[in-house]
Amino acid sequence: MSRNINNIDDLLRSSFEDFSSAPSPAVRAKVSKSIKNFNFLRFNPGSFNVFYLAAIVLGTSVVVSISAGVFSSESEHPGTTKNAESGRNSAVEQSVIVTNSGKIVHDSEIADFEENTEENNNFPLQQTVTDNYTDLNVSEKSVSQSDNSEAEVAVITETDSIPEEKLFVFDTIVETVKIVVADTIKTEVRKTVEVKKNRRNQK
């Protein structure tokens, strides 16, 4: 102990140079457990297990269900977004008639028409309108009009079904997700098999 030790610093240094204290087996068990947790939380292709697969499946199903929900809500409440946007500009809702030819007839125009017809023929408004548009397939819609009087018309199909374009996009997303999941699983399985083969070869 006294070799090359001239002061307290040397004494401390030499005493603790190789100082060690064995931890108890309980600490080893604790550390082993925390290492297992640490390894589990760290993605490792070498230890690809059923939990990773479950996580992938769960994630995919969440993505698919969310995207399906978005599409179904779009089809159930079309034009909601547009109304919300126009609502910000203090829009005034008006009842209008949209013809198949795309012509929009506002309340004011109907009123004018009524006045004219009353003056000329004294027919009731609704009958006149029906008479004038009997050859047209009409539907009453709610549209919003912004402050500068530019009406934003919600585009609605007569059948209330999901448009083909949207269905196509939805199908494409689902197909892409399926392909990605299948590829990921294949790749991981391949990697796992390779790792295991390597281990076997090493042995």
Partner: peptide
């Protein structure tokens, strides 16, 4: 762990 735990402790 087994190799270095005593030193680290």
């Amino acid at each position: 762990y087994d190799k270095y735990a005593p030193m680290l402790r």
